[in-house]
Simulated scan of single mutants.
Amino acid sequence: MNFLRVPCVLLLTGVLGLAGCSVHQPTSLYQLDSGDPGQPKHSGGLAVLLGPVTIADYLQRETLLQRQPDGSLKASTDGRWAGSLSADIDQLLLRQLAWKLDSQRVVMAPAAASFTPDAQVVLSITRLDSGEKQPAVLDAQWRLLDRRGNVRDSKLIHLEEPHAGSSAAQVRAQGILLQRLADKLSVAVKPIANQPWVADVPKKATAPAKTRTDQDKPKIPMASPIRTDLEVFRF
């Protein structure tokens, strides 16, 4: 009986080893492709405040989601995001926008109290996903504010990008969509940020109300007597 126990133990160990290998398969980690943005040269370029930037709740997770033909989403079994997707989006847009505006004065919100932006970009990303047979899709809305905080532009954006189907190709396509979004933002920001500053024109002081005096009162003519048979007073 002792001779039979050894093969059984070895067999059980092998089965557990194979099970462990199947459970702990290596997972690929992905980051958004920020392209190849150049370094902005002008330290005194346009001052732009980027943010707040909000993303949809379903994107705030490590799992790489796959859009299905019926519109549903499934978690990828072999890939996830390497860190925070929200932080990756912020940095990609920041670098792209600074490069396209050629300005080192593009900062993420919240900024220091001493920073006075020429324009502010408030962005909401409601969709950013793809699937093996579904194109990468980006849905977003931006609002552009001028120096006084007034909304000067608001726009809804829908962008699509085809890909080869693999997880790596899908992530690359999503990065391209964000690069295209940054390009559109830079075009929209320039005319608002370049507007000359118009100082508040002081209102013309209102002259104080004039106090009426006795000299300003209407004069009532004095009655003068007319000599007739009857004494009549004419006014």
Rank of each mutant, 00 (worst) to 15 (best):
A199D: 09
W99K: 01
S224K: 13
L94R: 04
A169E: 10
L159I: 01
Y58H: 07
L49I: 07
V232H: 01
A111F: 14
A199M: 08
K74L: 10
T13V: 11
P221D: 03
A98W: 00
A188V: 09
L12Q: 06
S167I: 14
L85Q: 01
L11C: 07
V9S: 12
R148N: 11
E231W: 13
I192W: 02
I192Q: 00
V48C: 00
A193Q: 01
D90H: 11
R5E: 09
A205W: 03
E62P: 04
S76C: 13
A188T: 10
R234S: 13
V107P: 00
V23T: 03
D57V: 13
L230D: 08
R80G: 09
P40A: 07
F235T: 10
K190L: 13
S34K: 08
G44S: 15
T213W: 02
L59E: 00
D214R: 14
V53Q: 03
Q179T: 11
N2T: 12
Q104C: 08
R172A: 15
E62K: 12
P40F: 06
R227S: 12
V201P: 03
Q215C: 11
T77L: 14
Q25F: 09
I226R: 00
Q179K: 14
A87C: 02
P52E: 02
T206C: 02
L59F: 03
G71L: 01
D118I: 05
Q96H: 14
V198H: 08
G131Y: 09
I55K: 05
I125A: 09
L230T: 12
A75W: 04
R234W: 10
K217Y: 07
M1W: 09
Q66L: 15
R61H: 02
T213C: 05
